[in-house]
Write a protein that binds this DNA or RNA. Structure first.
Length: 1137
RNA sequence: GCCCAGAUGGUGGAAUCGGUAGACACGCAGGACUUAAAAUCCUGUGGCUUCACGGCUGUGCGGGUUCAAGUCCCGCUCUGGGUACCA
């Protein structure tokens, strides 16, 4: 193919075709010219209006660019070039999102440093991009893997760490201000987005140890360390964000993902939930992307609501006391006072100790519990710092220890003296008693406690006493809290459902139901996330035997558990209204529970009526109200009675920010006594260290733990790295000021360029990248780094260019001499095999191979390169066999279809190395030229639509360029020939029609239609035999954004020394399109029969008269009188008979 | 299930405001030039019907509004994308 083209260009064309269109040399020349003249360099100090066009920068994968990548880049390039013609100072940069998993996976397999792989891939990408002639300002290139770049990614992390979200001002503020406030007045009046509401005074804050302060501050910081349930992917050895997990497997690689509790860096994106939601309304994005973000943020407004239990809580196990603090609160309390790094272990020990209490311990506890001694509240087996105290009172800062107890690991190592010392340091007094004392002289022991308690004044509530606040005391733990968006349906509640994991399940379950409930809980625990997701239809649950009291009707409501209720959302409990919620309805039907209707509408005997419309019935004080009004009234009543509060829930979770990976930005954090600190800004960047292997350590720590001297002034560095989206969340800012060594972006640069006028990229980033980048932008606005709140004003999603995926299936079989062989088989056999008809498959294979087959097994499916196939069939069987064997699938036979051709299953799918269907744009460029590729990709259809790649039609576009070229050249000898004669009216009309269309189409991103307008223009000019400069020069300016090389060449042939890029966009003049008359379509009852020409200034009445007088009209009227006549000036005439 | 987008010739698609459906291109058929091929150019090309003029029909399906509907409204079917026991 190639050699033929070369042959013609070298030997034939120069001889006979002096000036034909040699795209290869033309394109190379101009690409060189643009690079040498820095034609597309953007100026930060221009007086011109600015226009910022951005493409989503690519991850430089090993497969190189495929024809799908440039689609969006071509569109943005057209807009950039157009805007330059229109007199804008255009910023159109490109870079690489070069941290990522594939390079690291490759590094693990080969030992090759990811930086090397990445560098090679970038070189290849750059070459491919250059071939297409983009007008990028390469002097501004950024790479997320550059230390000069991730310096500032780390800097942003530090700002997040040093920031907290002040709800009062609805913005992020410096943590130092918060610390000052804590010191002055405590946190009672701080309205922050934080994890826990610990209340302390200013003096208490000042009395806290450094460690305690830091622990509390972590609850406020926007970048924080916490124990979170994460999506752990063992195969990849890392955690994944929610949007990186699809259907229980990793989006990249498709490996299973499990839920795991880990200490992780997270970003408090949820603080910005409302602003992220509100901001969407101001954006020029497609509705579907905005909707996807709204769903992801998942705002739901409703109310919290308490149901009191009908009977007091029964202890689930003999030894566990009725608690006035629920287990959750107890755990939170532990967490507040415990050493976080040891918390997980300690918690288990504490629970274990409680369950296995010694006799002496039980004796003391029976005396201390329920405020029996001097009304002092004691807790048992409570975690303080690294220790588990046997008994503790926070008000009196008193710890009571019994000797002879089995302590936790740490306790065994550290002596009792040391324990006492540390506890004293924390402000506690320790009283020690031996088991013998307790057994022989309990009264003496209690007396000592009493006299101590009476000797001191109890302290005001401390942070440790969180959970002992008024609210907890009032509730007395005997209620269950719910969240509902439909408080109006409160009278339709016929049962309550708790998640199987709900904390109260064990405590409320009656003995009669205990076995079944425990069984069910175990069952749901063992069901993996994936099973639970896959199996949505099966309804399951158990009755706990317990009842709650309806807050208004005071009737008894049974409490069930069911795994359709998620522990992680709301309160993990649902007030079930089966008549008006489809899931509750299904549950009620399945277990035969009542379905009382409280909103009019629908047919409750068939299905639930979920619509938020209708009048309330059977609902006491809500009767007769519309749903909306009823919701309002119900909330008022619930709040008035102290049963709950109007509340807004968001589905948006805080973003986990750490990855147990090597190839990412190091998190600029070090640990001092287990407390995280950020490094000083002057020490940035913290460069990614060298490691011997890119794998976790033997002890399971991330790869960075392998690095030598991985510490900061002797303090160990964080070993996790940032996730892939860190670098891409702010890269658009760095382009504005890419070489600034002092700041991430200078204020002057960001004030000039502002936010992005046009952002083009794939819709696969709908929630991930676009949401995170918006979050960071809002944060950067809060801290004064950028002057705008939304980074991307207008977003256009280009559709994916899909490839063809060809699949064949491999079977292995044994022949008559017991040899094991393999054959590749057509699709129809595979479907038979799958449906269990292996007998039939064996028969067909045997018939083809011509021998008896004793055994036949399906082995796997193999994707075959598309280039082997013309149209789902394959004739070169030896070639295919060869390819299969080179891909590791040696086959002895191909099973041929009835048409004696080998058939392959063909589907459209993603273009990827994996499917062997990547089409390289370089091939198109060398065969047809970059201009043809650019025009063709635009001509394929609307930018936003997904389309399978095919080269049919590319000839037409190429032909068009050749035609355009010929307009400038003499027909006989092909010399350049443009005339300076004035243009004719018809020629000007064609030109201005095209100016109008091309201008409007770019503004509407309708690039396919403007390509067709150019074709129409060239066809018309060709018919007019037009070679006039007055027409052709403006025309190539119009065409140049699409096909810059050929236009640049023609522009210079026309005698211009400067780049066509500097030419002004032609101005449309409507005068040339003015028509004096119009060929009216004359229709009868809406059917067009013929046309009549009238002057356009002829009034409708006159047109009507003239039409009626026409003999054709008379013919079609067939003697009837028209009932009505419509004349639309310049459009149509319709006669109603 | 829910949300969003869409459905037009053999194919990709056009019709931006309710006003001649199928622009432009591919493919196909026929022709010109040529020893031949390539390249280029010309003609035709939704379906049915007719020697022809023409007629009928036609934008996923069924209704409706209108002088006029691919376009607006109601009810479906199917396809693509997103999302999910979110209370």
């Amino acid at each position: 193919m190639l050699w033929l083209a070369d042959f013609f260009s070298i030997f034939l064309l120069p001889k006979f075709n002096m000036a034909s269109y040699h795209f290869n040399s033309i394109e190379k020349n101009w690409q060189k010219f643009w690079a040498e003249h820095q034609t597309f360099k953007a100026d930060n100090h221009s007086k011109l209006p600015k226009y910022y066009v951005l493409d989503m920068f690519p991850y430089p994968s090993g497969a190189g660019l495929h024809v799908g990548h440039p689609l969006g880049y071509i569109a943005s390039d057209i807009v950039s070039r157009y805007k330059r013609h229109k007199g804008f100072n255009v910023l159109h940069p490109m870079g690489y999102d070069s941290f990522g998993l594939p390079a690291e996976q490759y590094a693990i397999q080969t030992g090759q440093h990811p930086a090397i792989t990445t560098d090679e891939n970038i070189k290849r990408y750059r070459q491919q991009l250059d071939n297409i002639g983009f007008s990028f300002d390469w002097s501004r290139e950024v790479r997320t893997t550059d230390a000069q770049y991730y310096h500032w990614t780390q800097w942003i992390f530090i700002q997040l760490f040093n920031g907290w979200y002040n709800k009062a001002n609805d913005k992020a503020e410096p943590i130092n201000d918060l610390i000052k406030k804590f010191g002055a007045e405590g946190n009672a009046n701080v309205n922050a987005v934080c994890d826990e509401t610990i209340v302390f005074s200013g003096s208490e804050w000042n009395a806290f140890s450094e460690k305690q302060k830091q622990t509390i501050l972590l609850n406020y910081r926007l970048a924080y360390l916490s124990d979170t349930m994460v999506n752990w992917c063992p195969e990849l050895g890392t955690v994944l964000a929610n949007d990186e997990v699809k259907d229980g497997v990793s989006e990249r690689g498709g490996y299973p993902v499990e839920r795991k509790l880990m200490s992780q860096w997270s970003l408090r994106i949820a603080a910005y939930a409302e602003r992220l939601l509100q901001g969407l309304d101001t954006l020029d994005w497609t509705e579907s992307i905005k909707e996807a973000q709204r769903n992801w943020i998942g705002k739901s407004e409703g109310t919290s609501l308490k149901f009191y239990l009908a009977s007091p809580l029964t202890p689930p196990q003999g030894k566990q006391e009725p608690s006035d603090v629920s287990m959750v609160e107890e755990e939170e309390l532990w967490y507040a006072t415990a050493d976080k790094s040891k918390y997980r272990i300690l918690k288990d020990f504490a629970l274990e100790n409680r369950r296995n209490a010694t006799n002496e311990e039980i004796i003391i506890w029976e005396a201390l519990r329920n405020n029996q001694i001097e009304n002092v509240k004691f807790r048992r087996q409570h975690i303080i710092d690294k220790f588990i105290a046997d008994f503790v009172s926070f008000e009196y800062k008193l710890v009571i220890e019994l000797d002879g107890l089995i302590h936790s690991l740490e306790d065994n190592i550290i002596s009792d003296e040391a324990r006492t010392l540390v506890l004293n340091e924390l402000g506690f007094t320790v009283l020690r008693f031996t088991n013998e004392e307790v057994n022989s002289n309990l009264n003496g022991v209690l007396g000592k406690i009493k006299s101590y308690v009476n000797s001191i004044v109890p302290s005001t509530p401390s942070p440790m006493e969180k959970g002992m606040g008024d609210e907890a005391k009032k509730s007395q733990g005997e209620c269950i809290e719910f969240f509902t968006t439909r408080p109006d349906t409160i009278f339709g509640v016929s049962f309550l459902t708790l998640a199987p994991e709900h904390e109260l399940v064990a405590q409320i379950t009656t003995d009669a139901c205990k076995a079944a409930v425990e069984n069910y809980v175990t069952l749901s625990k063992n069901r993996s996330e994936r099973d639970r997701m896959a199996d949505v239809k099966t309804i399951s649950g158990e009755f706990t035997g317990a009842y709650a009291i309806h807050p208004f009707t005071k009737t008894l409501i049974p409490i069930w558990i069911g795994d359709y209720v998620l522990a992680g959302y709301g309160t993990g409990a649902v007030m079930a209204v089966p008549a008006h919620d489809s899931r509750d309805y299904a549950f009620a039907k399945h277990f035969n529970l009542p379905i009382p209707q409280v909103v009019e509408g629908g047919d409750i005997s068939v299905e639930s009526y979920d619509a938020k419309e209708g009048l309330l019935i059977n609902s006491d004080f809500l009767n007769g109200l519309e749903v909306k009004a009823a919701i309002k009234k119900a909330i008022e009543k619930i709040e008035a009675e102290g049963l709950g509060k109007g509340k807004t829930n968001y589905r948006l979770r805080n973003a986990i920010f750490g990855r147990q990976r090597y190839w990412g930005e190091p998190i600029p954090v070090y640990y001092k006594e287990g407390v995280p600190y950020v490094v000083e800004e002057k020490d940035l960047p913290i460069a990614l260290p060298e490691v011997d292997k890119f794998l976790p350590t033997e002890t399971g720590e991330p790869p960075l733990a392998r690095a030598q001297n991985w510490n900061y002034n002797g303090h160990a560095f964080e070993t996790t790295t940032m996730p892939g989206w860190a670098g891409s969340s702010w890269y658009y800012l760095r382009y504005m000021d890419p070489h600034n060594a002092k700041e991430m972006v200078g204020i002057e640069a960001v004030n000039y360029w502002q936010n992005i006028d046009l952002y083009i990229g794939g819709s696969e980033h709908a929630v991930g990248h676009l949401l995170y980048a918006r979050f960071w932008c809002k944060f950067l606005k809060d801290i004064g780094t950028v002057p705008f709140e939304e980074p991307f004003k207008k977003l256009v999603n280009q559709g994916m260019i899909q490839g063809t995926v060809c699949t064949t299936y491999i079977y292995s079989y044994k022949n008559h001499v017991n040899e094991i062989l393999k054959c590749a088989v057509a699709v129809d056999l595979h479907s038979q095999f799958k449906s269990g008809n292996s007998e039939g498959v064996i028969k067909i294979i045997a018939a083809q191979i011509g021998s008896s087959i004793t055994d036949c097994q399906y082995v796997n499916e193999v994707n075959v390169p598309f280039e082997f196939f013309a149209a789902a069939v394959f004739e070169d069987s030896e070639g295919l066999k060869k390819w299969l064997s080179s891909a590791g699938n040696s086959v002895s036979h191909l099973i041929i279809g009835s048409d004696s051709k080998f058939q392959v299953k063909m589907e459209t799918g993603k273009m990827s190395k994996r499917w062997h269907n990547v089409v390289n744009p370089d091939d198109i460029c060398s065969q047809y030229g970059a201009d043809t590729l650019r025009l063709y990709e635009m001509f394929l259809g609307p930018l936003q639509d997904a389309k399978p790649w095919s080269t049919q039609g590319i000839e037409g576009v190429h032909r068009f360029l050749k035609k355009a070229w010929r307009l400038f050249h003499n027909h006989t000898n092909e010399d350049f020939a443009v005339s300076d004669e004035p243009a004719l009216k018809a020629e000007l009309k064609t030109l201005h029609k095209t100016i109008k269309k091309a201008t409007e189409d770019i503004d509407n991103f309708s690039f396919n239609t403007s390509v067709s307008a150019f074709m129409v223009c060239v066809n018309e000019l060709q018919d007019l035999k037009c070679n006039k400069r007055e027409i052709l020069e403006p025309f190539i300016v119009l065409l140049s954004p699409y096909a810059p090389h050929i236009c640049e060449e023609l522009w210079h042939l026309c005698g211009h020394a400067e780049s066509i890029e500097k030419a002004d966009w032609p101005v449309f003049n409507s005068e040339f399109l003015v028509e004096n008359d119009f060929n009216y379509p004359i229709s009868f009852n809406g059917k067009v029969r013929f046309n009549l020409n009238f002057a356009l200034d002829l009034e409708p009445l006159a047109v009507e008269k003239a039409v009626l007088a026409d003999e054709q009209t008379i013919k079609y009227l067939e003697g009837k009188t028209p009932k009505k006549m419509i004349v639309v000036k310049g459009r149509i005439v319709n006669i109603v008979i």
